[in-house]
Design a protein around this nucleic acid. Sequence first.
DNA 1: AATTCGGGGCC
DNA 2: GGCCCAGAATT
Length: 346
Amino acid sequence: MVFSKTLTHWYSNNKRDFPWRKTKNPYYIWLSEIILQQTQVKQGLPYYEVFIRTYPTVFDLANASESEILKLWQGLGYYSRARNLHTTAKYIVNKFNGEFPSTYDDLLKLKGVGDYTASAIASICFNENTAVVDGNVYRVLARYFGIETPINSTKGTKEFKKLAQELIDKKNPAEFNQAIMEFGATQCKPKNPDCAACPFNNSCIALQKNMIDKLPVKQKTIKLRKRYFNFLVFISENGNTVLEKRKTKGIWQNLYQFPLIESNKSLNYKELKDIVNAHHVLNGNCFNLFLYNEDDIIHKLSHQHLYTKFWIVEVKTLHENSININDVKDFAVPVLIDNFLKSFNF
DNA sequence: AATTCGGGGCC
DNA sequence: GGCCCAGAATT
C-alpha cells in the first residue's frame, strides 16, 4: 500500500502531457495502445496524431482500405499491428455497432489485443481492476522487490502479473497502471536511472544489493539471420517502374517493394545478370543493367540483417501493370525501400 | 516454450 | 554492437 501510494503521488507530480491522457474514449485509448506496443512514445506520438485526425471514429477506420492504413503506418514497424487494427475496427463496427467491449475478458478476444492491452483499456476506460504488465512494469517490480525470475519465462510472466495485481490501487486502477509505466519510462529507466532522486531509494531491494544493472533478468539472446536482397528497380522510357506486394508470411507482409531476388550470398554483376536472364524477367528484351549502391546497404531488423543491393534496370517498355514513378509514393513500403526512394533521383 | 514479427534511440 | 521500447501471434 505504501508502494502504491508513493507511486501515484510521484505520478501526480511527474506525469507527462500526452493527448491520450486527455480522453477515456476506448477508441482513442485502443489506438494509442496498439501504436505504443514495443514502441517508444517519441516514435509513436506523430503516428497517433495522424491516425486520429484521419480516422476520428472507429467507423472511419473500418471504412478505410488496408493499403491506406498501411501507408499511414509506414515506418512504424510490426505491420501486423496495422493489419489487426483494421480487422478489429471492422469487427467492432459490424458486430458491436461501433461500441467497444468494456471488460478485460471481452477485450482480450480482439485481434492484436493481448493481456497488456486488454488490461490497459479495461482499467483506463472502464475502471476495471486489472494490472498492466509491460516492459516498464517488469523493470520496476524486478528492481524494487529484487526479483530474479526471468521476465520472459512462463513462471516470470505469471509471477509479475500476480504481483502487479496485488499492488494495484483498487480505488483507481487507471491511475496506478499509468503511474507505474510512467515511472519505469522516466525514472526507473533501463540504463543509468537516477536512483539518488528516486522516491523509493530507501526501500528498493536492487539498489540495496547493488543490482540495478542486473535486473530485470532476461533469458536467452536472440539469434540473427543474414539475408541477401537484390531489388530490381525497373525504369522504362515512359517513366514507369514495377512494384510488387509481399504476400508471403514473414517481414513486411502486404507492403510493397521492387521485384526481389534473394540469394544466399552477395551477388556480383555477372551472377545477378545470369539470374535475370535465366528467369526470363524481361522476355528477352534488351536492357541496361547497373548497380546503384557499390557497398551493400545493411538494413538491421530485430532478427535479421538484410544485405541489400539495388539494381537499376533500364528498359524500353514495361508490362501493363507497371506504375508511373510518380505514383510510387502512394504505396506503403518498408523503410529500406523508402530510404532508397529518398536518395535516388528517378 | 521458443520464434518471429520493425524501426529508432541509447549507451 | 547489444539492449530496450506502453507486446502479440504463431509455431
